[in-house]
């Protein structure tokens, strides 16, 4: 019994020591593991930089490749847009790319705001950026790299650039309805019905009551109410010089560069 008790006390002590030892080993192991992971990550980053340098041209020239590279960066916690040191700038000399794209996008938003009520289809921004031979824009931005290097700009690039403007202020946002995306530069709420009308008018940039009735199967009242709302939000313009009244949506198409 006595032995048992002594064993008990000593055992407790030993157990405690053992636990401490395990804790120590565990924590040093964790530390090691962490350090090794950190090391791996550093190696990975280094490789990423090498990779970026090596494929610089491809990253610059191919929007799809650029987007994939971007996703890779973000998945390991290197955000080229947020990183203060300017990852893109250091590695690719492209630090200004998104900044300049953002400036160009905001220029388009401001130039068309009076017409489209501050809502513009993402595809329309892309169209206008693609046709950047428009005098007004080229003149002002000719020394910028976007034009100089003739990067092909993807939807992904546009969204990233808009996210960058959002850092500066909340006035720019991307709104999506279904798979249709808009850039909104004037605050306002689009209802479900309004966005449906815009979505089905996307191809032509205008619609009519008859077209809406055919595609949406709504009652006349519901259609008229939605159109009235869009007119009042300054997102629609009427055109009475056709066979029937046309409702145009400058957010979807505006001949800024024709």
């Amino acid at each position: 019994m006595l032995r048992g008790k002594a064993l008990g006390l000593a055992g407790l002590r030993r157990e405690q020591e053992a636990r401490q030892a395990i804790d120590f080993i565990a924590s040093s192991f964790r530390k090691e593991l962490y350090e090794s992971l950190q090391k791996q990550l550093d190696v990975f980053r280094e490789n990423l930089v090498l990779f970026a340098r090596k494929y610089r041209k491809k990253i610059e020239n191919e929007p799809e490749f650029r987007a994939q590279f971007h996703r890779l960066c973000i998945s390991i916690g290197v955000d080229p847009l947020v990183s203060k040191k300017g990852f893109w700038e250091e590695v690719l000399g492209m630090g200004d790319f998104y900044y300049e794209l953002a400036v160009k996008i905001s220029e388009i938003c401001i130039a068309t705001r009076d017409i489209n009520g501050g809502l513009i289809l993402l595809d329309e921004i892309k169209r206008l950026l693609d046709n950047h031979n428009d005098e007004k824009f080229t003149k002002r931005t000719s020394k910028r790299i976007i034009l100089r290097n003739r990067y092909e700009i993807s939807r992904d690039d546009i969204e990233r650039a808009v996210q960058r403007i959002q850092v500066l202020g909340k006035s720019y946002s991307i709104v999506s309805f279904g798979n249709i995306r808009y850039i909104q530069s004037v605050p306002g709420e689009l209802s479900h019905d309004h966005s449906c009308v815009l979505s089905v008018s996307k191809e032509q940039g205008f619609t009519t009551e008859r077209k809406l009735a055919a595609s949406l199967k709504w009652s006349k009242e519901r259609i008229l109410l939605a159109l009235k709302g869009l007119l009042e939000m300054e997102l629609a313009w009427i055109d009475d010089q056709d066979l029937e009244r046309l409702y145009w949506f400058p957010s979807l198409y505006y001949p800024i560069d024709d």
Partner: peptide, 24 residues
């Protein structure tokens, strides 16, 4: 550009839009 946009040629019913239209 607005000269090539068909609705520019119809006087707009909503006052705010019409103001912008007349200014153009």
């Amino acid at each position: 550009p607005f000269y090539s946009y068909p609705p520019s040629f119809t006087l707009q019913p909503v006052k705010a839009t019409r103001e912008k239209q007349l200014k153009l």
